[in-house]
Design a binder for these strands. Structure first.
Length: 140
DNA sequence: GCCAACGTTGGC
DNA sequence: GCCAACGTTGGC
């Protein structure tokens, strides 16, 4: 099966790309939104995701890959929510800012803009390709 | 600090 | 089941 592509958001105050790199593999916990959780459940090991800094920076700063598929979120006492494990792949050499994305007509339809509050979202292959090009990111 | 978007809760 | 009130997220 083909690799799927995603974008995940994190507030760098809470959990930054720097921490992701230092920890290498990190559980992606705390998603408490049904739509975002549905996407987490859809992720497969090996899928790639952009790591986006919300609030501070507002830019795509790195790429992570799914290291473990959805399992119960240990930070959720109710047991209803899931998380995945993410592994740092490599930084995006030239971070792609929200302003740049907004200024790019081809990217007008991506979830980041259409649904600004969603923290986990799929990225279409053509958008992934374009964003990689804009950020100067190549698969290592 | 404000506000828009949108999800959740609770009264009816 | 509807909808107003309220809370949260995230951009500006």
């Amino acid at each position: 099966m083909a690799v799927s592509h995603w974008l995940v958001k994190s507030e760098p105050d809470a959990f930054s790309w720097q921490q992701q790199v230092e920890n290498k593999v990190e559980p992606w916990t705390g998603v408490r939104n049904a739509q975002a959780a549905k996407f987490l459940r859809t992720m497969a090991v090996g899928d790639l995701a952009f790591f986006y800094h919300s609030n501070i920076g507002k830019e795509i700063v790195g790429v992570v890959e799914v290291a473990r598929a959805a399992y119960p979120d240990p930070t959720d006492e109710s047991g209803r929510w899931v998380c995945v494990d993410m592994r740092a792949v490599s930084p995006v050499p030239q971070p792609v800012t929200l302003a740049t994305i907004k200024a790019t007509p081809e990217l007008a339809e991506i979830g980041l803009i259409r649904q600004s509050r969603l923290s986990v979202m799929p990225i279409a292959p053509e958008h992934w390709k374009l964003l990689c090009k804009m950020g100067g990111w190549r698969k290592p």
